[in-house]
Design a protein around this nucleic acid. Structure first.
Length: 484
RNA sequence: GGCCCCAUCGUCUAUCGGUUAGGACACGACCCUUUCAAGGUCGGGAGACGGGUUCGACUCCCGUUGGGGCUACCA
């Protein structure tokens, strides 16, 4: 019988949801969904000093935006400190761990000695000095002396078959006896993680490979606790363009940053999926269902990947043009409303027209912000002329003015408001002036939109409508009149 | 310092012993075209180095170098 896997994402709420964390969450989620298993969420808030509710909310929001929904209730690590402490005591009682009576003062002294030696030095505990004879330790505990609990690392070698790396082995002599319970009774990370993963029935631990060196400690804890080992998969890190670990100074590293830059969640998932995993072959642009379909541990990579914002933007352009129009409208709507270009009520009223507009705009946009920028002239009456477009297309104000007056007349005289009628009238006008159609269309585009970039000129006219188009052209004529 | 992980174009990657080492982003040129985007064609661009194993290594093994991670009573 093969059980379905139980996986988890276990962030500490000390900041926003980082792209590295999002990638890890995504992989866990994809695998759970593919295998019909469970994806759980655990907030590791045992570090009271650094954890904030705001960060917890940001993590929820980020995951939800990406569509990474979790099964079962969120587990807060802080709610289980009693179990953690009980596990530590069990280990102490069974001899897998020992009491450490080192005081805070001694600790501080040790730290300053190590720091004085400079970087590259670490403090090693001397078990012979700290691990007291059982009778003495018990007496001191009975006397009420504060003590931390330190795990007694056995001799031998700890190894595991990593799903990503194959066999990884650590000689136990290189694993220091580590604290599992502080002298104030609170649990330390490695113990809390193992205790919780056991309690949650996690069968596959997939996380960043910065945790590789924690793994032998955790395996030792599983064994000492008499629990079944989960499978481990250590994913490669994500680096910035300078090859260093991705951090704040690389710019936008929170998923919320990209959300605000106008990146679609489907793009983010697609892009992140390719950092540390490959479906093999030349496949790149994938929507959610295809990602679930293709994802698997076989495609997991070992090498750290560099986060390339350029490719993210390109991929977003791909998603923008491939997604169902409804989805694009849904994602763009809040940005248009936020920009004050259209109210929610107006959006509903003019839904069809707006959908048509967005459909035309999305093919030449890379981000939602691009769409908003390009949609502006169609949603506001007071258009602003882009200086670059004006400089390029309205080089000769007097001549342009004359041309636009003729265009207005031509448009006004059109027998029908159809693309065919527009094309024949305007091309005839260009011909009568002895100029190429483009020489007429470009200045006209600027007059109609204020921009050098827009959909086809006939589509722009149709979108604007006859009256608004004429008003725009007359406004441009007036503007040009002032400059001559 | 010690331990562990990693190593194909600038970047993301394909290749699972035999390929003119393929694709994508970015870059350059051209085509299409009323602009832009998209699309199309073409171009430059990679197996870190040194040893093995093998008829044959990007691929397997060892070493070197380089990069990364960990080395807390942080997570």
């Amino acid at each position: 019988m093969t059980d379905t896997p139980r996986l988890r994402f276990a962030p500490s709420p000390t900041g926003y949801l980082h792209v590295g964390g999002a990638r890890t969450a995504l992989f866990n989620w994809l695998y759970a969904r593919k295998m019909g298993g469970q994806f759980l969420l655990r907030i590791e808030d045992t570090d009271k000093a650094r954890s904030t509710d705001e960060s917890t909310r940001a993590i929820f929001e980020g995951l939800l935006w990406l569509g990474l929904d979790w099964d079962e209730e969120v587990v807060y690590q802080g709610a289980h400190v009693e179990r953690h402490a009980a596990d530590a005591q069990r280990l102490l009682a069974s001899g897998h761990a020992y009491a450490d009576f080192t005081t805070q003062e001694e600790l501080a002294a040790q730290r300053s000695v190590v720091e004085a030696k400079g970087p590259g030095h670490a403090f090693r505990v001397d078990r012979a000095k700290v691990d007291l004879p059982a009778a003495e330790a018990q007496a001191r505990i009975a006397r009420g002396e504060p003590y931390a609990i330190r795990f007694r690392v056995p001799d031998g070698t700890t190894e595991w078959p990593d799903l990503v790396h194959g066999r990884i082995a650590f000689p136990n002599k290189d694993v220091e006896d580590f604290i599992i319970l502080r002298s104030d009774g609170t649990p330390v990370y490695n113990l809390a993680v193992v205790s919780d993963d056991i309690a949650m029935g996690i069968t596959l631990v997939m996380r960043g490979d910065d945790h590789i060196s924690n793994t032998p400690k955790q395996i030792l804890l599983y064994r000492a606790l008499g629990a079944t080992l989960p499978t481990f998969a250590h994913l490669p890190m994500i680096h910035g363009t300078d090859g260093k670990k991705l951090s704040k100074r690389h710019g936008a590293t929170a998923v919320a940053d990209w959300q605000h830059e106008g990146i679609l969640p489907s793009t983010m998932n697609n892009f992140l999926s390719l950092l540390g995993w490959s479906p093999g072959g030349d496949i790149e642009v994938m929507m959610r269902d295809e990602l679930i379909e293709r994802f698997g541990v076989d495609g997991l990579l070992k090498k750290a990947a560099v986060f390339d914002p350029k490719k993210l933007e390109w991929m977003n352009g791909q998603h923008l043009s491939r997604l169902p129009l409804d989805e694009v409208v849904l994602r763009t709507r809040p940005a248009l409303v936020a920009a004050g270009l259209v109210s929610d009520a107006a959006f509903d009223e003019r839904h069809e027209w707006l959908a048509k507009l967005l459909d035309l705009l999305r093919v030449r946009a890379r981000t939602i912000d691009d769409i908003v920028r390009q949609a502006t002239p169609y949603l506001r009456d007071d258009i602003t002329y882009d200086p670059d477009a004006v400089a390029k297309q309205w080089k000769d104000p007097a001549q342009t003015r004359e041309l636009l007056i003729a265009a207005a007349a031509s448009i006004e005289a059109m027998p029908a408001w159809t693309a065919e009628a527009m094309e024949s009238s305007l091309r005839a006008l260009a011909e009568s002036k002895g100029m190429q159609a483009g020489k007429l269309f470009q200045p006209l585009r600027v007059a109609l939109t204020g921009l050098g970039v827009s959909p086809g000129i006939f589509e722009v006219l149709d979108l604007l409508g006859k009256d608004r188009s004429l008003a725009r052209i007359r406004a441009a004529v007036a503007t040009l009149g002032q400059t001559t």
